[in-house]
Design a protein around this nucleic acid. Structure first.
Lengths: 144, 144
DNA sequence: GATTTTTTCGAGTAATATTATAGATTATAT
DNA sequence: ATATAATCTATAATATTACTCGAAAAAATC
């Protein structure tokens, strides 16, 4: 399951992606627009900022804005920040690998073998899909 | 993340799939072989039995055995029993659909749109892979 | 038919992770 | 100086996961 944290992160980035040429947007404004608990969003934006995706400015007229082209912010990166691994088993993770507790013989584990395939299929989609794509998909869906 | 419940379920089914022409195997034997907490495994096997995948027999000489050809038991079915939905968002689930708490406009949600694709990719693999395939993969991995 | 073996059933609990909140601090603009 | 808004640290509330307990029911064997 995708955590609320990740959903909120994506939603916030989408809002900021639509706000590219505007002055920075405040946490409270994003929280209001997307109905995200403000204090929770605060933490999430901070994580995204620390990962380099956001620019932030304190004080009056401050707020958050994207630090990169929305075309260059991929879901896979966001998810790794907010949820951690993409793979469904730790032993199949590229960025967060560790042995499964239950596993006796990783090299011959058939479960791992299947879930490496699942990871690859998921990864392909998530690393091809950007915030810009999400925005595009939404406008396409509206016009249909 | 795949729950331990699901991993244990798959492991138990694999053990039983290798035991096809033998008399039924006891919970305690499976638990021992796969190092699964016995009482936990008990619940899991009961779920699989109630779903029609296992045959069970009480009393001395009783135990569990597969009720179907291991080629016809697919990971997708097991996971739906033990973990529920395959999709990462409830609104993209085929068998466990429900609205996301946070969602205001499902029909135009770009997140949903992407995760329907992820679901399809995952589903393809999981509904093509059977217990027999897991067993086959393991023996292939051993011989490499 | 008593005893042993083994599944079945219902409930309960412990551990962990997720989601959210609170309050004080720091930086910036006016 | 004052108001604004991000940052930081801690903690509370809730949900989920992973298990555990004890007793009942069914079947085999002596």
């Amino acid at each position: 399951m995708l955590s609320k944290k990740t959903k909120y992160a994506i939603k916030a980035l989408v809002v900021l992606g639509k706000n590219m040429d505007q002055p920075p947007m405040q946490i409270s404004r994003i929280a209001e627009l997307e109905r995200i608990p403000k204090k929770f969003l605060e933490q999430i934006l901070l994580d995204l900022r620390n990962a380099g995706f956001l620019y932030s400015k304190k004080g009056a007229g401050g707020g958050y804005s994207l630090n990169r082209d929305p075309k260059e912010i991929f879901l896979v990166s966001i998810m790794r920040i907010t949820d951690g691994p993409i793979a469904m088993v730790p032993c199949a993770s590229l960025n967060f690998y560790h042995k499964c507790d239950e596993c006796h013989q990783e090299s011959t584990c058939g479960i791992r073998d299947v879930f490496v395939d699942v990871r690859d299929a998921t990864l392909k989609i998530l690393s091809e899909t950007s915030i810009a794509d999400i925005i595009k998909r939404e406008s396409t869906l509206i016009s249909v």
